[in-house]
Amino acid sequence: MALYRKKPVVIEAFRYWIEGRPDWFCDKVTTNEIITYPTHCVINTLEGVMRGEVGDYIIQGVQGEIYPCKPDIFARTYDYVKEAIN
């Protein structure tokens, strides 16, 4: 058996209904790949439909994929790098 470490990657993310929505999220809303509601959003992903709740992190991955992540898992998985410059 061998051990492996996940390569560090930088992702973009925001907290749904807590922080402003970035352009990459709004673009997917426009194309109906993401449907927004007052209490949650529904995201069509390669793994199927996923639901993001208020306060969940919405992540754009390294290949442009978008998916939700619960705050406790996000905190264990990611470290803050810096504020994105738009």
Score class of each variant (00 low, 15 high):
Asp72Ser: 07
Pro22Glu: 08
Ala2Thr: 09
Thr30Lys: 14
Asn32His: 15
Glu47His: 13
Gly64Glu: 06
Lys7Glu: 04
Lys7Cys: 12
Gly61Asp: 10
Gln63Trp: 08
Phe25Glu: 07
Ile43Thr: 08
Met1His: 11
Asp27Cys: 03
Thr36Lys: 08
Thr39Gly: 15
Glu53Trp: 14
Val62Tyr: 07
Phe14Lys: 02
Leu3Phe: 08
Glu53Ser: 14
Leu3Cys: 02
Arg51Thr: 15
Val62Ser: 11
Glu53Val: 13
Glu12Cys: 03
Ala13Gly: 01
Glu65Trp: 09
Met1Ser: 13
Glu33Lys: 06
Arg5Cys: 06
Phe14Thr: 00
Thr31Leu: 10
Ile43Arg: 07
Tyr80Asn: 08
Asn32Asp: 15
Ile58Leu: 15
Glu53Met: 14
Lys82Val: 09
Gly20Asn: 05
Phe14Gly: 00
Pro38Tyr: 07
Thr39Gln: 10
Ala75Trp: 06
Glu83Cys: 05
Arg21Asp: 07
Asn32Tyr: 10
Ile59Trp: 04
Lys28Arg: 10
Pro22Tyr: 01
Glu19Asn: 01
Ala84Gly: 00
Lys28Gly: 03
Arg21Ser: 10
Cys69Gly: 03
Leu3Trp: 05
Tyr67Pro: 05
Asn44Trp: 10
Thr77Asp: 07
Thr77Glu: 11
Gly48Leu: 10
Val42Tyr: 09
Pro68Asn: 04
Tyr16Cys: 00
Pro22His: 09
Arg76Val: 03
Trp24Met: 00
Val49Thr: 15
Val42Glu: 15
Tyr67Leu: 06
Arg5Ile: 11
Val49Ser: 12
Gly20His: 01
Ile58Cys: 12
Tyr67Ala: 05
Pro68Phe: 12
Lys28Tyr: 06
Tyr37Val: 03
Thr30Ile: 11
Ile43Ala: 04
Thr77Cys: 07
Val10Asp: 02
Gln60Ser: 13
Asp27Trp: 04
Thr36Phe: 11
Thr77Asn: 06
Arg15Phe: 07
Asn86Val: 14
Pro38Ile: 04
Phe25Ser: 03
Tyr80Ile: 08
Pro71Ala: 06
Tyr67Phe: 15
Tyr78Ile: 04
Phe14Pro: 05
Ile85Met: 05
Tyr4Arg: 04
Asp79His: 02
Lys6Met: 10
Val62Lys: 06
Ile35Leu: 13
Arg21Gly: 01
Pro8Tyr: 08
Asn32Phe: 15
Glu47Gln: 13
Glu12His: 06
Asp79Tyr: 04
Lys28Leu: 09
Leu46His: 11
Pro71Cys: 01
Asp27Arg: 02
Lys7Met: 02
Cys26Ile: 13
Gln63Phe: 14
Gly20Lys: 00
Gln60Arg: 09
Leu3Ser: 06
Cys69Ile: 03
Tyr16Thr: 01
Ile18Asn: 01
Gly55Ala: 12
Cys41His: 09
Asn32Leu: 15
Gly64Met: 02
Ile18Trp: 07
Glu83Arg: 09
Trp17Arg: 14
Pro8Ile: 01
Thr77Val: 02
Lys82Ala: 09
Ile11Arg: 03
Phe25Cys: 03
Tyr16Trp: 00
Val54Glu: 14
Gln63Lys: 13
Phe25Trp: 11
Ile58Val: 04
Ala13Phe: 02
Arg76Glu: 08
Ile58His: 07
Cys69Leu: 06
Pro8Asp: 08
